[in-house]
């Protein structure tokens, strides 16, 4: 097993393996000692870090990370299943050969998968690695966190006796996912997407390949979740609420503000309906914008996507998604609400 791995590795790799066998993993020891030192000096440090604003920031920061990680682990497990256990044939039977047809199918497939948005990035990446057209995988990425039953039920709970809001949310999110998929297919086929290779290739047992893929995907995505959580917590803590609320009166400004608010606060899609419902100063259409933009794109997702698919990709994808999401939400709001 290990013999075959070594033979297949390029020469540079076996060189570094040899070096590693001699030297200890120094970096890990240094990091471990540094952490231990920090934790030991806790008694001394904690009173010096005692400021209400910092405490509020750190509570929200830790809360977003703690809430996201179980969903992220669920996502990387599913991504691992797709990457290693799902056969080419099964995948081909599930996804239509033509991307034009595959896009709406992927959009509807999102209904069946209750996932958080942080789970869907590794899943989409894993689909692409398995040869699914990027536009199809991206449609799934946008649809899965937005139109699944959990999100729709929580929306119905947050807006009692307003089924039209649930319907508008469902249609606007599905429309966003499918429209972005088709636009990407038509206009952005050549935009480079980084395909980060999942650890080693074929010469491993399935179990090892599965664990390797899970570990790789988790390490890749988690840092970006943390970065997004840091920014979202800072916005929550340091931008005065009066600024956010102050723009509610103006129709255009309210829509723009809700889109921006959804982008920066990075709530999980299961919870954003309750927050939207509580933004009582805003119109229903503005609330709909908040609920459609949020699951499709936020600072945490943008951070994860630029890590997973590369900066060139994120630079095009992020504004495209926000633009389409705002337009479809406003359109739905005008039609249904």
């Amino acid at each position: 097993m290990s013999e075959s791995t070594r033979q297949d590795s390029p020469p540079s790799t076996s060189g570094s393996t040899a070096r590693r066998a001699v030297g200890l993993p120094v970096q890990a020891y240094v990091v471990f000692v540094a952490m231990a030192a920090l934790v030991m000096s806790q008694q001394w440090l904690v009173p010096r870090l005692d400021s209400p604003a910092l405490a509020t920031w750190s509570t929200i920061f830790v809360a977003i990370v703690v809430q996201s990680i179980p969903f992220l682990v669920g996502g990387v497990l599913l991504a691992g299943v797709i990457a290693t256990l799902l056969s080419e044939r099964a995948l081909r039977r599930l996804v239509p050969a033509s991307p034009t047809l595959g896009v709406p199918v992927a959009g509807l497939a999102g209904v069946a998968l209750p996932g958080c948005e942080c789970a869907s990035v590794p899943v989409a990446s894993s689909l692409m690695r398995r040869g699914v057209a990027p536009s199809v995988a991206l449609t799934f990425l946008l649809a899965a966190p937005a139109v699944n039953p959990v999100v729709l039920v929580s929306t119905a709970v947050a807006f009692p006796d307003r089924p039209e809001i649930v319907l508008a949310r469902f249609l606007a999110s599905l429309l966003t996912a499918v429209a972005v998929g088709w636009l990407w297919l038509r206009f952005a086929g050549r935009v480079p997407i980084l395909h980060r290779r999942s650890t080693h290739d074929h010469d491993e047992s399935t179990a090892q390949a599965f664990l390797g893929s899970v570990r790789h995907d988790f390490i890749h995505a988690a840092g970006f979740v943390v970065l997004g959580a840091m920014i979202a917590a800072a916005i929550n803590t340091f931008v005065p609420r009066s600024i956010i609320d102050g723009v509610a009166g103006n129709v255009v400004l309210a829509v723009a503000a809700m889109a921006l608010f959804a982008f920066v606060v990075a709530l999980c899609s299961e919870a954003d309906a309750f927050v939207a419902a509580s933004l009582s100063a805003f119109s229903d259409t503005a609330k709909l914008v908040f609920m459609v933009v949020g699951p499709a794109m936020d600072v945490k997702l943008a951070s994860m996507e630029s890590g997973q698919f590369g900066g060139a990709f994120a630079l095009r994808f992020v504004p495209l998604v926000i633009g389409v999401a705002v337009l479809s939400a406003v359109g739905m709001g005008w039609w249904l609400l």
């Binding site: 790799t13 570094s16 934790v39 405490a55 750190s58 990370v65 840092g223 943390v226 951070s303 890590g307």
Partner: peptide, 27 residues
């Protein structure tokens, strides 16, 4: 092999932050 270490985004370091914040600030 250590080959794919090079591909791990440096943002992965940030994953230490929540643990440290939890222990040091104890939010």
């Amino acid at each position: 092999d250590d080959e794919h270490d090079a591909h791990v985004p440096r943002a992965a370091w940030l994953l230490f932050a929540p643990s440290l914040v939890f222990f040091l600030i104890a939010p």
